[in-house]
Design a binder for these strands. Structure first.
Length: 425
RNA sequence: GGAGAGGUGGCUGAGUGGUCGAAAGCGCUCCCCUGCUAAGGGAGUAUACCCCCCAACGGGGUAUCGAGGGUUCGAAUCCCUCUCUCUCCGCCA
């Protein structure tokens, strides 16, 4: 969420940001300011009354101690009335506070000035293209290949759990493990601390990173224990330091975690979600940074370059998009997407998303650091996939496909695989 | 799942209804003295929010002793609910 004081002082800017993100109802900014004002004035009144009541209660204590019961009794009568008044004010205060909080959670992060204004994916800017996207020649789509070779079993996955929960079999299971190891090792070399994290999170954590109240439909719920299955490692990792005050010397904090991710993907169907294009459970290596506010945008470029380097080492053609205001999401202030080329589908597939959230997530989480003045200050958070597995796998299955339906193992993965090809007879 | 014990500031640890946001010690910061090592003295040292000008400095106030609610003029202290930790039993990779 944004800082209320900031919203108060930059109302027009916040509203413009909302409109640019495609949020029509920017009137909630005015609503918020109104409710906030009312709340603040009532806080003042209530605190004053409490102050008076506290002073009087102390006085009563003194009088009681001196045995002046009659005098004390008089004050007690007065403070009893005060108490009633305070209670009324407190009830009103609670309502206002709740309203204020609700409104605050509905206001999205403001896009950075460097972000192109636009309403849909068509307005995203191609920031960079690397490699040459291959023609659709003799290659067959990855889903046909894996079925032919028995490498991924979608049907048995559907039997055991449901659509979008595939089994990976034999060499492809191993290839995924190789990718995970490769990604984790690379991140480790870059100074990211590896974490193994809980796969279920509670409601506070979901709110901290912004899955609630905006996107709860994306998550699987475990109602009996009031958990959500993580839609991305971003949630547990970013919440790792929730409600903490970090030392400035320790910034930036950089974490990497491999986890499965679960997403309901309600409403998705059709040819675009065939094969590995979209799954309910998939593997991902996620990078999270907690940084000093001054360095956040540099850290974003750095994060993007790192994710790009992974694809370059895998020798997979990709392009980087700078997401426009309308396509970037509620919590981000700036976001890049990395997309790999699927030759058989002749389309781009998103494999990474690198975002700067500014203080938006950190404020919800009360994630702070102590600055040079010794004051607490909200720090900034970023995250990026490094990388999401299934679509990278899909790209490998198509790009590294040989005419005999075998797969050449990308060079950087060979040490993990112990072989140069998969499926060759 | 059952039984019991317990959650106090950066840490240790006092405090069982009144001047307690909280003793003391440790740690940390600054100052003074001393001046090899060591030691001594003083001051400061939680977080959030509100107000004083939506700035800085400074000042004032409120809330917070695991969380929420209740009793009371007054709660760290009493009552209820929840939560977490520890011990024992049960179950189990």
């Amino acid at each position: 969420m944004l800082d209320v004081t900031y919203i108060r002082n930059h109302a027009e800017h916040v509203k413009e940001g909302m409109r640019n993100k495609g949020e029509e109802n920017s009137g909630i900014v005015d609503q918020l300011i109104e409710v906030d004002e009312e709340w603040r004035s009532l806080v003042k009144k209530t605190d004053d009354l409490r102050s008076e009541s506290n002073t009087k209660a102390q006085k009563i204590g003194e009088l009681m101690g001196q045995g002046k019961k009659d005098e004390a009794q008089k004050i007690i009568e007065y403070t009893s009335k005060l108490k009633q008044e305070i209670k009324e004010k407190e009830e009103k205060l609670n309502v206002l506070k709740k309203d204020r909080g609700k409104l605050l959670l509905q206001i999205p992060n403001v896009p950075h000035e460097s972000v192109p204004v636009g309403s849909s994916e068509e307005d995203n800017e191609v920031f960079k293209t690397w490699g040459t996207p291959a023609e659709n020649d003799w290659r067959i789509p990855h889903w046909e290949l894996v079925e032919e070779q028995g490498w991924i079993d979608f049907e048995r996955g559907a039997k055991v759990t449901g659509a979008g929960f595939p089994f990976y079999v034999g060499p492809i299971a191993k290839l995924q493990r190789a990718l995970i190891n490769y990604f984790l090792n690379k991140a480790g070399e870059q100074g990211y601390t590896e974490l193994q994290v809980p796969y279920f999170i509670n409601e506070d954590s979901a709110r901290g990173t912004g899955q609630i109240p905006d996107k709860e439909d994306m998550m699987y719920e475990i109602p009996r224990d009031e958990f959500f299955a993580i839609p991305t490692a971003e949630v547990p990792v970013t919440n790792f330091h929730r409600d903490e005050i970090l030392q400035k010397e320790n910034l930036p904090l950089k974490y990497v975690a491999y986890t499965p991710c679960w997403r309901r993907e309600a409403g998705s169907y059709g040819k675009d979600v065939r094969g590995l294009n979209r799954l309910h459970q998939f593997d991902k290596v996620e990078l999270v940074k907690m940084v000093h506010p001054d360095t956040a945008f540099d850290e974003l470029e750095n994060l993007r370059e790192y994710a790009e380097s992974l694809l370059e080492e895998l020798n997979i053609p990709y392009r980087t998009l700078l997401m426009c205001t309308g396509d970037m999401g509620f919590t981000q202030t700036k976001k890049y997407d990395l997309e790999v080329w699927s030759p058989a589908q002749q389309r781009w597939l998103e494999v990474s998303s690198c975002s700067n959230f500014g203080s938006f997530q950190a404020r919800r989480m009360m994630l702070r650091f102590r600055n040079d003045e010794g004051d607490t200050e909200i720090l900034h958070t970023l995250n990026g996939s490094g990388l999401a597995l299934p679509r990278v796998l899909a790209a490998i299955l198509e790009i590294y496909q040989q005419e005999d339906s075998s797969i050449e193992v990308p060079e950087v993965l060979q040490p993990f695989m112990g072989t140069e090809t998969i499926g060759a007879e």
